[in-house]
Computed example of a mutant assay.
Amino acid sequence: MSNIFSGYARNVIDQLPPGRLLALDVFRGITIAAMILVNNPGSWSYVYAPMAHAKWHGWTPTDLIFPFFIFIAGVSVAIVMNRELAKGTDKLFLLKHAFVRAVKLFALGLFLALFYYNFSDPDFSWVDAKLFSMRVMGVLQRIGLVYFATVFIVLYWQNLGRWLWAIGLLLGYWALVMLTPYSDSAGNTYIGLLEFGNSLPAFIDNYVFSAKHLYYASATPFAFDPEGLISTLPAISGCLAGVFTGNILTNKALTLAGKAKKMLVIGLVCAIVGELWGLVFPINKALWTSSFVVMSSGWALLTLAALTWLIDIKGKKYWSAPFVVCGANAIFFYMFAGVLARLLMMIPVADSSLGDWLFSDVLQPLFGNYNGSLMFAISFLFVSYWVLDYLYRKKIFFKV
């Protein structure tokens, strides 16, 4: 088995172009694989704590996955924009291209929001249940908005301006959330609250979208979305943190070891500052607080520094082949997993769905509640990977 994997790994890694930032490819692959794993348990009632989001304030390893993805997008923005600007590519052309890509990402997110039909209910109305109650925001929607805003900032501001944007968005969001008064329908006025269903981000989400278009539709006094409207603002700072990291990685004046050390030091500072800031502005993924952005950016830097040291400096790279495959088709991976998960909910089996049947009648009796739920997630990941590996071997890559 080890010889088979060794041959497979060498076939993947040795075919990569020389000079490629392998650690970044692996980081992207680990992140998207982790996202698929935690998004698809056999039952949400049986999830090990590290694989679940924090209930409210605080964080778990799972809470780092989405900000890592946004951070990686920022690294890619820096690499691509630096290359294109050095070639003299027109800024407006690059901005238009970014806009089109952002629209595509947003549209893919809406497609996933609409892709469901309850075949077991003869009275089910897709128009009422999905179209007229469509969740507007979501993971891909946020990535699209953040990506476009980041490209705009990178194209029209130099390094100092980008830093001012990053810091200004973090401090501005903190001030906006903590100092702006808002009222509910009963006339009660609030200020500076960070409660489930009672915060300025929730108030704005509820006002702009209305409850039926939000993820937490039953939250009171305000429905809200964990990928909400104004909570997208600090996420842009997380993407800009990736841009600054991309500039470090492409700095030819630094050795590879120097780049890893710089990321390590900055990552430690950010992680500590984020935790300290969290004492007064709690770390909260659902509200995407500024302290959460600084903390998660710190851990992203630490992770990338560790991978750079292990893979690109020490040369321990062949173990990473599956993650290279995952990262090469990251958006397709997310879309495929999203469609497959919905199909497992839609296909009726007995008095339940195919997904529920696989867990409750097959995996749960064999492995128990929590391990059965975990085995479902792992099996789901392996099935998805089998498709990705086929596409990789056929050199089929989907770009948005």
Rank of each mutant, 00 (worst) to 15 (best):
I4V: 04
S6M: 02
A9C: 06
D14A: 14
G19V: 14
G19R: 13
T31H: 02
M35I: 14
L37P: 04
G42V: 05
G42T: 06
V47N: 13
A52T: 07
H53P: 07
A54E: 00
W56A: 05
G58R: 03
G58T: 07
D63S: 01
F66S: 00
I72T: 11
S76D: 12
S76E: 09
V80F: 13
M81T: 13
N82L: 02
D90I: 09
D90H: 12
D90E: 11
K96N: 09
H97F: 13
A102C: 00
V103N: 13
F111S: 02
L112M: 09
A113S: 10
Y117G: 01
S120D: 02
D121K: 06
F124G: 09
A129T: 09
R135W: 01
V139I: 05
V139C: 02
Q141W: 05
V146Y: 01
F148N: 07
Y156V: 12
Q158A: 13
W163H: 00
L164Q: 13
G168W: 01
L171D: 00
G172A: 04
A175Q: 05
A175G: 06
L179P: 08
Y182D: 02
S185I: 14
G192R: 02
G192S: 04
L194M: 14
G197P: 11
S199I: 15
A202E: 04
F203T: 08
V208R: 10
V208K: 10
L214G: 06
Y216K: 15
Y216R: 15
A217D: 03
S218K: 08
A223T: 11
F224P: 04
E227F: 00
A235M: 11
I236P: 01
C239D: 08
V243Q: 05
N247C: 15
L254G: 10
T255C: 08
L256D: 01
K259V: 07
A260T: 12
L264W: 11
G267Y: 00
C270F: 10
I272N: 03
G274A: 15
G274W: 14
L276E: 00
W277L: 03
A286F: 04
W288I: 00
T289A: 06
T289V: 11
F292V: 02
V293W: 01
M295L: 09
A300W: 04
L302P: 10
L304G: 06
L307E: 08
L307A: 07
W309S: 01
D312K: 04
D312Y: 02
I313S: 07
G315Y: 04
W319N: 03
F323R: 06
F323V: 05
V324D: 01
C326R: 05
C326H: 02
C326M: 06
A330Q: 03
F332G: 14
F336W: 07
G338N: 05
L340W: 12
A341N: 11
M346G: 11
M346N: 14
S353H: 11
G355S: 07
G355P: 05
W357S: 13
Q364I: 05
Q364E: 07
Q364H: 10
L366G: 12
I378K: 03
I378S: 09
V383S: 06
V383Q: 10
W386V: 01
K395D: 15
F398S: 13
